[in-house]
Design a binder for these strands. Sequence first.
DNA 1: CTAAGACCTCAACTAATGTTGAGGTCAAGC
DNA 2: GCTTGACCTCAACATTAGTTGAGGTCTTAG
Lengths: 151, 151
Amino acid sequence: MGQIGGGRHATLTVGDLAARSGVAVSALHFYERKGLLDSERTSGNQRRYRRDALRRVAFIRVSQRVGIPLADIRTALASLPEERTPTKADWARLSRVWREELDERIAALEHLRNDLTGCIGCGCLSLRTCALQNPDDQLGEGGIGPRRWQD
Amino acid sequence: MGQIGGGRHATLTVGDLAARSGVAVSALHFYERKGLLDSERTSGNQRRYRRDALRRVAFIRVSQRVGIPLADIRTALASLPEERTPTKADWARLSRVWREELDERIAALEHLRNDLTGCIGCGCLSLRTCALQNPDDQLGEGGIGPRRWQD
DNA sequence: CTAAGACCTCAACTAATGTTGAGGTCAAGC
DNA sequence: GCTTGACCTCAACATTAGTTGAGGTCTTAG
């Protein structure tokens, strides 16, 4: 634990942060490698996190639940003010962007549901006539590469 | 082309199927390796598809747009009658299952949106109090492994 | 009949998001 | 001051959904 019961002190060890955020240590290392998180080091090279790392990790997880890839989360986090602990307003600003993303994704899925419902009626799945096969919305235009969504 | 202009004949070559479905040849090979699709072979070992392969591929793509992983699509396809060309009713039955999945996913995302909207108000993202951090719905319970959603 | 284009297999690579393990170091309680 | 648990790095592996390339074969139009 990071001194005196795991957290009243100024910094957190990686184990503390993992325990409090519910994120595995290996994932925290990974976020750091990817530039989403950083830490100071002790003289012995061990990570020490400032307490706002906790909110940072929280933001990462919430963003992932919304379906945002880490690279985009990284970009968003990079827009936080450097050398000033982010305020609640800073976090709220970032989150608002995600809500718009989420709105769009929900709308796209609803559109898809409407199409699918129609196609179930005819059972067609016809390549020429079925709306699902010739999408006029954004869904499915990004090709077949690695997935962007998560659950 | 699969004889006489690419398709009036009984079977399709892999190139025909690719052209008509909009799916790359390499993806069709991949689906076959994964058991989602199969083909007869000519004496020279080239694939020849029955015409209902077209609808099968259509079903695969539609399912992927709904966000279903290939393994699940494979399971669904396995429930189609063997040795009888599937009817429209068969396809409609499968699609209905996906619509239920889609309904659930939309509902989960809407729930998430409500939580996020609330959390934007307070800017908290608190690990203890924010609904997003302590999910009581299905979202986010599957852990962190490979993604299940797509776009 | 032959040449060009389509097809074949197999292995390696991509991308995102991590986990696992090996081999070694730090820090803290007794 | 030593031992034990936590930490370090780096490399390899897992998963999903394919793509790319090498090296070779089939089919078909002319």
